[in-house]
Structure formats: structure tokens, C-alpha cells
């Protein structure tokens, strides 16, 4: 089964392409990492999948359908920094947004919605914070609120933009546990991630991006020196990480 398929997807800003000819098929029931250096179009790719930026060419199919037909089955977790956390709202107010739909927008929040939202907060260990003001949360707690909001949607496909940026160790572990639980339930999670070193531990499938698509596939096929260098090439600080990976590889070979 295929969760997301992109075909010849190209996105441009002011006539300059930021994503070029992206072509991949992602399997369902896996945790997919979208990896690439800064400015490689990772966030833009997620936004293109969610129909939030206009595409210049190509198409995206989700569960073999157009986005509009399967919207209810997809949940989007935007970057934490994309909203104003000083907004006058409580943790519960935010998580309840996961229950908003076009059809119930004019209706009041139901008891069932409240229960589902509380359950979602429980899953990220934030239930005791439900009346807390969002301006009083730490970065990791903010991220968990965003993930709880997404869980409240009860989707089959989760699309997360940099959920591991600026979070504490407890949050990182909570998110990783959630991801593996979701995988067990047969859900698909697509995560934008910038840290090459942790990527290999977090994901089973990788899309390597640098404006154009360098490679996509199971992680063992992707974590190869020439592919990583192709994606990250010319970036000194990242090259050292590539060097580390090469060492790791050399070591593995000897071990065998």
C-alpha cells in the first residue's frame, strides 16, 4: 500500500524552483524521514503535500486519491515556531482544534470531542497541563501540545514538520514512543528532520532532499556515502558528520 505518491512535483517561489521534479512513493505503516540540508525544500515539500503552497507542475496522491477526498485521514503538525505562543488560549483550547472540521465549525464543542482531546493529552503525558496557559509551556511541552492536537484528529497519516527541534530529552523520548506506537497501529508518519546523526535511529524509510530529490527508499539503501555527499555536498559542518558516518561504516565492515 502506498500512503503518499508524488509525481514530477515542482514548486517555485518567484519563478525560482525550491523543489524540482520530486518523484517518490512512500509505503504505509512506516516512519518516514525527510532529510536534507537547510533550504533544501523539506518544509515546502510538506506544504505542497498538504496543498498549502501552489505547485508549478506534477501532482500528489494520498492513499491513491486527491487531497480533498482524504483530508479527514491526514493530520498536519506545523513547525512549533510558526505560531504565536503568547496567544490567549489554554492547552485544552489548542488540542480541541484537532476536532474542528468544516462541517462542525459553527457547532459547539461536544462532550465526545472533549474526551478525545483529553485522551490525546494523556498520550503525550500532558493531561495535568490541560488548563495551563500556552504561554507558560516550555518548548518541549509546546511540541507535545501540537502532537496531541494532531492525535485528536484520529488520522491515518501524520505529517510533522521538525518535531524534534528544541525539545528536551523527555519530549524526544515521548515522541519516539508515540511514533513506534503509531507504526504498530499501521499508521504512517512522515517527519521532516534536519539532524543526519539521529535520522538513522528514528526512521525506517528516508527521502533525501536537496531541492531535487537525491534518493528515497529504506534507510539502509539511503545511508550511503555518495548519496549523503550528493545531498549535503559542499557544506563543511555537515561534511564532518558524513565523515563520522563513513567511519561508522568502516567499523561495521571490520566487525563483519
Amino acid at each position: 500500500m502506498i500512503s503518499i505518491e508524488t509525481h514530477n512535483l515542482t514548486v517555485s517561489y518567484n519563478k525560482r524552483p525550491v523543489l524540482w521534479n520530486i518523484d517518490f512513493e512512500l509505503p504505509t505503516g512506516s516512519i518516514v524521514g525527510i532529510i536534507g540540508p537547510n533550504g533544501s525544500g523539506k518544509t515546502t515539500l510538506l506544504k505542497a503535500i498538504m496543498g498549502l503552497v501552489p505547485t508549478s507542475s506534477g501532482y500528489v496522491k494520498i492513499f491513491d486519491k486527491d487531497l480533498a477526498d482524504v483530508r479527514q485521514r491526514i493530520s498536519y503538525v506545523p513547525q512549533r515556531e510558526s505560531v504565536d505562543w503568547d496567544f490567549p488560549a489554554s492547552v485544552m483550547d489548542i488540542v480541541l482544534m484537532g476536532r474542528y472540521k468544516k462541517a462542525n465549525l459553527m457547532k459547539r464543542i461536544s462532550k465526545a470531542d472533549l474526551e478525545i482531546a483529553a485522551e490525546a493529552l494523556e498520550k503525550v503525558n500532558m493531561l495535568e497541563f490541560s488548563n495551563r496557559q500556552i504561554s507558560q509551556l516550555s518548548g518541549g511541552q509546546q511540541q507535545r501540545v501540537f502532537i496531541a492536537r494532531s492525535l485528536a484528529q484520529g488520522a491515518d497519516l501524520y505529517i510533522m514538520d521538525e518535531p524534534f527541534v528544541g525539545v528536551d530529552a523527555a519530549t524526544e523520548e515521548a515522541i519516539l514512543n508515540l511514533l513506534s506506537d503509531m507504526k504498530k497501529e499501521g499508521k504512517t508518519v512522515v517527519v521532516v528532520h534536519h539532524d543526519l546523526q539521529t535520522a538513522k535511529d528514528y526512521f525506517d524509510w528516508i527521502v533525501l532532499l536537496n531541492t531535487r530529490m537525491v534518493a528515497a527508499g529504506p534507510k539502509d539503501e539511503i545511508f550511503k556515502e555518495e548519496l549523503l555527499q550528493e545531498a549535503y555536498g559542499g557544506k563543511l559542518n555537515v561534511l564532518s558528520k558524513v565523515g563520522d558516518l563513513m567511519k561508522e561504516k568502516a567499523f561495521n565492515v571490520r566487525e563483519k
Binding site: 506544504k47 498549502l52 505560531v83 482544534m97 474542528y100 472540521k101 468544516k102
Partner: peptide
């Protein structure tokens, strides 16, 4: 609060 999330919900 979050226009992009609203858009993603349709």
C-alpha cells in the same frame, strides 16, 4: 491562531 493548520483541515 494557526492559519496553516486551519487550511490543512480544509
Amino acid at each position: 491562531f494557526n492559519e496553516e493548520f486551519a487550511k490543512a483541515l480544509g
